[in-house]
Simulated assay, not measured.
Amino acid sequence: MPQTLSIASWNINSVRARIDIVERFLTEEAPDILCLQETKVVNETFPTDMFRRMGYVHQVLNGQRMHHGVAIMSKVPIHEDDRFDWQANGEARHVGIRLDNGVRIENVYVPAGGDVPDRAINPKFGQKLDFLERMIQWSSELEDKPTILTGDFNIAPMECDVWSHKQLLNVVSHTAIECELLGRLQDSNNWVDIGRKFFPAPQRLYTWWSYRARDWAESDRGRRLDHMWMTQDVADKAIGHRVVEPARSWTKPSDHIPIVTEFAF
Rank of each mutant, 00 (worst) to 15 (best):
A71R: 03
T261W: 03
D161F: 04
M1C: 09
N101G: 04
V95I: 13
L36D: 00
C35A: 12
F199K: 06
W209E: 09
Q203D: 12
K166A: 10
K128Y: 00
L5D: 04
R242Q: 10
N189Q: 15
A247L: 09
I12R: 03
D130Q: 15
D144A: 12
I121T: 15
M50D: 14
R223V: 12
V171W: 02
R53L: 13
R204Q: 15
F131S: 05
L5N: 03
Q186L: 15
R16D: 07
H165I: 09
F125Q: 04
L168T: 11
P146G: 01
R134Y: 11
W208H: 09
V192T: 09
H58S: 05
W10S: 03
V172M: 11
W229V: 04
M228S: 06
H79D: 09
S164A: 04
G114R: 02
I257L: 05
I259T: 08
A247M: 14
K197A: 11
S254W: 05
C179S: 12
R212L: 12
I121N: 02
R184S: 14
W229K: 04
K197G: 01
T150E: 06
I194H: 02
A112F: 13
D49C: 01
R93W: 10
V60P: 08
T175Y: 05
T207V: 08
A8R: 00
R18W: 07
D85Y: 01
E143W: 08
S254Y: 04
F265V: 11
L181Q: 10
R242H: 07
D161K: 02
P146W: 07
V116C: 01
G63D: 06
F199E: 08
V110R: 03
Q137D: 15
D187R: 12
N154C: 00
F199D: 08
D193I: 10
L99G: 05
D233T: 14
V95H: 01
V260T: 09
N189E: 11
V116D: 00
E106H: 14
S173V: 14
I78Q: 05
Q137E: 15
F125I: 06
M228N: 07
G69Q: 02
L34K: 05
Q37Y: 03
N89A: 12
R93D: 02
A201I: 08
D215H: 13
D85G: 06
S9D: 06
D49Q: 14
G114Y: 00
C35F: 02
F125T: 01
A264K: 15
V260D: 00
I121H: 09
T147F: 01
R119A: 13
Q232A: 12
G55P: 01
E143Y: 09
F84H: 11
P157H: 00
D226Q: 04
R83P: 01
T207Q: 02
T39N: 03
M158H: 15
W209F: 07
E133P: 08
G113I: 03
H79I: 07
T261Y: 07
R212S: 11
D85M: 06
D187V: 14
L36M: 10
H94T: 13
G90I: 10
D193L: 02
K166L: 12
C160A: 14
E218D: 14
P123K: 11
M135P: 05
S249N: 10
N107K: 01
M73V: 11
